[in-house]
Nucleic acid binder design. Structure first.
Lengths: 202, 202, 202, 202
DNA sequence: GAATAAACGAGACGGTACGTCGCGTCTTAAG
DNA sequence: CTTAAGACGCGACGTACCGTCTCGTTTATTC
């Protein structure tokens, strides 16, 4: 995305924003990430290519905005237990990652990250930051509940919970079922609950 | 890669295999995945493009072969405990994923997977299958040792252990340190050890 | 150019006319015809693009107005001989065509003529018509003087005198010197003086 | 055009040369210079754009090659008189300039000359140089015949004869008829025959 | 040893997306 | 109604890269 606030001259037509994003989503669904073309998107939206490039610096930014931007996750409700909270959280994370659009778009965007710092920031912000924030809440809740003696690093919790989902999305052929999702959440809950010193050998 | 066995005519020059792979690795280090060009690779190797395409079906296959192929992981030694085995395994997985070449190459290859079934198989075989096999050994060992009452699904173990490492590689800016790697392994060990029914709410 | 006479609402700011033309001339000198951009001209003049298009229909019209319009040639003084008159006329024509601005602008405008009838008319009026008129005067003067038995077609005279100057401007690398200009005028004078039937073979 | 002589690798397909030039000529006839598009030319020729750019540096070079290149004028036959030779020469020049393709292409190419030195050379070579050469022959023939005491500068002769034709082509609406062409040639013959000192006032 | 078959270096080829740029029009708010 | 600013539709440009094909040449195996 680009700078949002000019106050002089003709203002951006917000209908175009919507038309472009919609066109991009349609083409993505029809032809996949590679099949989405700036020219085709412009044509589908009834818009000039320049109008797109005025809003998005690149195809990657466009498709990010069309699919992932604003897909905020809701703050997790208190289920009464750490494990319950993690299960809910796992489902939320999973859901967000496995929408058809997201499945199409995430791998190429991850590939783009190496040459696009701005996109990198955007992706990290969308996924990592918000999820860590929510996990911090969950973990703190568990500590207050007495399930945890000390609240572990939310970043660790995020890796433990989100990592398996992420890996499954990217390299496994078939989507995960709820049972497996719950098994992951349970294992993470157990892993977080057990103190580092609890195990016999260290 | 392609079929290896014609027996007529001039045989393949095996020097070329090496020269091409070396050239690809050099260019990858210099310019990143996108910067690697088949033409440049051929030129650098002192070779025609056809000689490359005779060996590799596509740029993706070439770079896979140049960086990831044959990077087999050694079967994990018995450390005496599940947690110790997982720590060793975590380090092995991490090491393999974070070589400079692998970091450059993995994201684009993941993106390529959607339109290249052969590559998909190759990647899954290299990463998922071998790691699952090794984890199966580890888990079975722990069961025999008495650490686990029932051996959990190796696929689950793989997701739990490999997922966090994978996620960190792809979306986090900085590499993981050993402490975090160990923390992950410990948490996974605890998660696997705790029976599903042990927790109060299920 | 466009219709000059609105009488309602805010009157045109005549400072803008000058600023635009000056900006166009500056940019023309700096960057040549192609390098002149409507946007850049507007910016240089401190003016909106609309203010330019309100005055000129196109880039071609603008640059015509900025460089050639009003460049009227003075009626030729009587030098006492056809040859003298033609020499004076040749210099006038040459001078008008070889100002730096004119050299930059004439070839593109000639190219534009094929798709712009209005511009065609303007150019023909500026160059052909006025020069023919003046040549008609010169030729008629020569007839009265007795140098010519019959006044030849002024259009022919114009082609004979203006053509060589034009050709030199467009395709020759270096500008013409006065000697050559005089030689051309002399030859044309001789050519017009000699009756068609004077030559042996016809 | 570009360098003609590689001896390694796959040779240029000369069918493509012809197909591209033919396509360019067709499109030129259908849509005019501006209407000719590199993409359309490629499509029409059943060829990739790169194959065109490999042969021609720019649209201007392509259209030059498609219309004017190789349009050499034949050496003028001896008609027995300077005037006859000039008439023949005038017709040859006129004919070359007024083919439909040439009429379309010459004005834009003249406009391109200012930013394309190579094209400038090509055009000067095609038109100026060859015509001067032929005129030198004609003038020398006339001198030997005794029609001229001294052979005038062929460059001057070229300006006098070619200039009017050129001017008529570029700025006059309608094509010239043969009568006018002959009148020009006659006038030039007379102009060249008359010695500079013959006229009363110098 | 000649014939065959394939590999080889070089680079042309078809195709196609990219991002940029300019033109001339349109849309604001301000005057 | 004019102005400054600048967004808009359109569409061409020239570049780049992919993966394939075509040369002429080289190098083994097979007849």
């Amino acid at each position: 995305m680009q700078n949002p606030a000019p106050r002089l001259g003709r203002p951006r037509d917000s209908h175009i924003d919507q038309a472009v994003l919609a066109a991009a989503r349609e083409l993505l669904a029809e032809s996949g990430y590679v099949g989405v073309t700036m020219a085709a998107t412009a044509a589908r939206a009834g818009v000039g290519k320049a109008a797109i490039y005025r809003r998005f610096d690149s195809k990657a930014e466009l498709l990010f905005a069309a699919t992932l931007h604003g897909m905020d996750i809701e703050p997790p409700a208190d289920s009464g237990s750490l494990r319950g909270d993690l299960r809910a959280m796992a489902r939320v994370i999973h859901e967000r990652l496995t929408s058809p659009a997201a499945r199409q778009v995430i791998p190429p965007l991850l590939a783009e990250m190496s040459h696009d710092a701005e996109l990198t920031g955007r992706l990290q912000n969308t996924f990592v930051a918000s999820e860590r924030r929510d996990l911090a809440v969950i973990v703190e809740r568990a500590r207050k509940r007495g399930e945890l003696r000390r609240a572990p690093d939310p970043a660790l919790a995020h890796l433990l919970l989100g990592g398996p989902i992420f890996l499954a999305l990217l390299v496994l052929p078939d989507p995960m079922d709820t049972a497996r999702l719950d098994a992951i959440a349970s294992a993470v809950a157990a892993g977080l609950t057990t103190e580092p010193g609890d195990s016999p050998a260290d």
